[in-house]
């Protein structure tokens, strides 16, 4: 290795009984794309895309707290999201940029999860024949794939339901976000689905928000103790915030009936954002 670049792939790694289970590509993509061709690099990408999605999940949760300020404020917030960037950007411009970014992040996150899982399966073709006694791997770390898939399926349902209004039918009013959310969440099966998916998300984050520090190599004796605390706190925060929506809707604290709050701020004009609110 010393002075010349090793001719990778030219020397076979297979000797004696031992056979490689994975061969590194003969030609690497140019930097930095070549990173994604390696397992450690893929894990790094999982960490970065995980952080992007964590940012989304946090902002999404905080934004939804506007629900508790009544329909006017909630719908105003939804409208504000579409006009971020003001006059500089086309309507929904910034929103679409963020959406595409998240879509890309999710695609890379899932693709690396899937390919790394295949490598891991291949690395132990014959499982232990006697019971394994784990001492560090916890429920969260061992169910990352399951919780990830639950979250993915939920996100698809969530978009069909509240972005495209596929399930609400007549009751779906474009622009009246408050109406749509309260109508959807007042149904018991849907509220239960929200509970299940968000518990899965919190479990995923409990491990993921710790694991990413290792994958990205963010490590120092000065904050190592705090990494677990951060992950637990982040997962807990998302759990409490996101579970409050279905619970408060189911128990009637937030509901269609609480829409006595005026839809438009005082003195304001009726605009399209409160469509149908005073019917």
């Amino acid at each position: 290795m010393a002075t010349t670049t090793p001719a990778r792939g030219s020397q076979s790694s297979a000797r004696g009984l031992v056979r490689p289970t994975f061969s590194q590509p003969r030609r690497r993509l140019p930097y930095p794309f070549g990173l994604y061709q390696t397992a450690v690099g893929k894990k790094w990408v999982m960490g970065v895309t995980g952080i992007m999605m964590m940012g989304f999940v946090l902002v999404h949760m905080i934004g939804n707290l506007h629900m508790y300020e009544g329909p006017a404020k909630y719908n105003e917030y939804a409208e504000a999201l579409r006009t971020v960037g003001g006059a500089l950007m086309p309507r929904e411009g910034v929103l679409w940029a963020l959406r595409l970014g998240l879509l890309g992040a999710a695609a890379l996150h899932i693709h690396s999860a899937a390919t790394l899982t295949i490598i891991n399966r291949r690395s132990r073709p014959l499982a232990y024949q006697s019971p394994r006694d784990y001492s560090a791997a916890n429920f969260a770390s061992r169910t990352m794939r399951a919780t990830g898939i639950i979250v993915l399926l939920f996100v698809i349902f969530h978009l069909l339901d509240l972005t495209w209004g596929v399930f609400l039918g007549e009751d779906y009013i474009t622009g009246d976000v408050y109406n749509n959310v309260t109508r959807s969440l007042s149904s018991l099966p849907i509220a239960l689905l929200y509970l299940l998916a968000n518990i899965a998300l919190a479990v995923h984050l409990f491990h993921g928000a710790w694991s990413m520090f290792q994958s990205l190599g963010w490590n120092s004796p000065q904050f190592n103790q705090a990494r677990r605390v951060f992950a637990a706190a982040f997962a807990g925060l998302i759990l409490v915030g996101n579970l409050s929506f279905p619970i408060l809707n189911l128990t009637g604290v937030v509901s269609q009936d609480s829409r006595t709050t005026p839809c438009v701020a005082e003195g304001g004009e009726e605009t399209r954002i409160c469509l149908g609110v005073n019917e």
Binding site: S13, S23, I119, R124, M144, S215
Partner: peptide
């Protein structure tokens, strides 16, 4: 990476 699996920080 040619021989072993990928770390998930268990």
């Amino acid at each position: 990476e040619e021989f072993f699996g990928s770390c998930t920080n268990h």
